[in-house]
Nucleic acid binder design. Structure first.
Lengths: 275, 275
DNA sequence: CGCCACATTGCGCTTTTCTGCGGTTTTACT
DNA sequence: AGTAAAACCGCAGAAAAGCGCAATGTGGCG
């Protein structure tokens, strides 16, 4: 099939290019298709297979592609192969996206908000892309990679020790010295906290230091929204850092059971979920 | 001779122009077509290829186009909207890896070091994978994604306002309140600072706030190593935050010219580069 | 007006880079 | 094991880049 459409190269033919430009196009072609063959690329760029080989060799040493027999594959495609057992992870990812979208609905343009760590928080950041003039404080080191730079006016990060696996910083919830030596206590209209577990009495997480910080962030917000996917219900993790009543909203991806609905109602917590 | 060749001007021939006007037209041609060749431009503007080459060289150092073998390509697009990998980035990537490897050679196991922002710093982080028991302080939000968690004992991040595009935090170089309200001044054995430009007298960068922080981080280190790739030599950016003498080492990917070697020697700076 | 400093440009030369080709070796697949 | 494709190697021609130098043009200054 490759020979069929390569004979009369039509839309895929990009013709002759400058060497450096061709290499950039090669990287694109590889990352886009996941895998490519030398012969196919030679035809596409109208150069000899040797030239393609040399290009791919250099791109391989630069780490941009991975050289194989007959062609090259994308470097991140190695992480891509998703076996069937990742299904659970995918389901959770979908849940996090839903939660992120719902949580973004609580945020108004011009708001001042706090966001803590975790992948759910990153999903929220993606759904804040269409907001404007936000002021955001966080301990999530990766938030700046997910946020649309046009959506916020100020983004602050709390300093402290880094938990490398979670990509969060652990430290006091204040911003010292920014205004010239004066320690500012920080408050915000809305705190969006992703937690590790919930049972009928309290929110919990597995790390004590992180728990303290989450508690501080909850106390710094006039309104508190807790984000938690349905798989984390009925979990009582090591550090129970806040009673249900500290939250104003609980955002989740599935309607909790009546037991939890009653508990939330009794604590004055509003449940936000799809449907 | 001007009258002679004006006879056979094609319709695409724009003829002779003043240097400045030609350069502006060059930028237009490049950004419009995505890529251009030297020969093509030489004919179009009726000048020698050498002149076009010189023009493109200057436009490249100004960042308006990207110089390649045989011509130039547009900086922003690469003629593709979602080309995540910038061509310039590719070229410099190899240089940064070299610098990162050399810089890692300055770090001993058990060291306390400071690292600032920039992709060069991330390259350094990758090359610290085989070190152990490091204590690291940084304002680089992405460092935790590149560091091997087994290589360090403590990782601290300075809080502050986030520059979203650079993924760094800008704030005071100290860690407040971690030990219970006491502001600790931070010192380290080695500060590894990636800078934006260097000339024969000083190091510079384009952002004032970041410059202040880089200066503070340099002052906090017993030993200071500046990381800078060869493309950033002869650049005098807006904020010149430190004289050459503040550095103990300059780490780069190519042996600098004699002018710089003399300047570094006079300032007591040791140059580290391949070969 | 003459002179000099400076930028721009083109030319000849060498050096580097890129590319394709022929021949040999290695790899993958039946 | 055999076969075809792919990779490796060395080489050479072409194109481009770099370098020094000279010619030209421009503007300032005594």
């Amino acid at each position: 099939m490759t020979s069929a459409d390569s004979v009369h190269r039509t839309r895929t033919d990009v013709g002759r290019r400058l060497p450096a430009g061709r290499k950039a196009a090669l990287v694109d072609a590889v990352t886009e298709a996941g895998q490519v063959t030398v012969a196919e690329l030679a035809e596409k760029f109208d150069v000899s297979p040797d030239t393609i080989r040399r290009d791919l060799d250099r791109l391989d040493t630069d780490g941009l592609v991975i050289r194989t027999h007959g062609g090259a594959v994308s470097p991140q495609s190695g992480a891509k192969p998703e076996t069937a057992l990742d299904l659970r992870k995918q389901v959770q990812m979908a849940a996090k996206e839903i939660i992120g979208e719902l949580a973004a609905g609580l945020v108004d343009d011009g708001d001042t908000i706090m966001i803590n760590g975790g992948t759910t928080a990153l999903a929220l950041a993606r759904h804040l892309a269409d907001h404007h003039s936000l002021t955001i404080a966080t301990n999530n080191l990766l938030l700046s990679t997910e946020l649309n730079p046009d959506s916020f006016r100020n983004l602050y990060i709390f300093g402290g020790t880094v938990r490398p696996h979670d990509h969060v910083s652990i430290g006091p919830v204040h911003l010292g010295g920014l205004a010239g030596g004066v320690d500012l206590d920080v408050r915000c209209r809305l705190s969006l906290i992703a937690v590790g577990g919930v049972n009928t009495t309290s929110f919990s997480t597995s790390n004590v230091a992180e728990a303290t910080m989450m508690r501080d962030m909850m106390e710094a917000g006039d309104t508190v929204a807790v984000m938690i996917d349905s798989s984390k219900f009925n979990r009582k993790l090591f550090a129970q850092f806040a009673p249900l009543a500290m939250a104003d909203y609980v955002i989740t991806d599935q309607m909790p059971g009546t037991e939890y609905m009653n508990a939330f109602a009794a604590a004055g917590v509003e449940v936000i979920c799809p449907d």
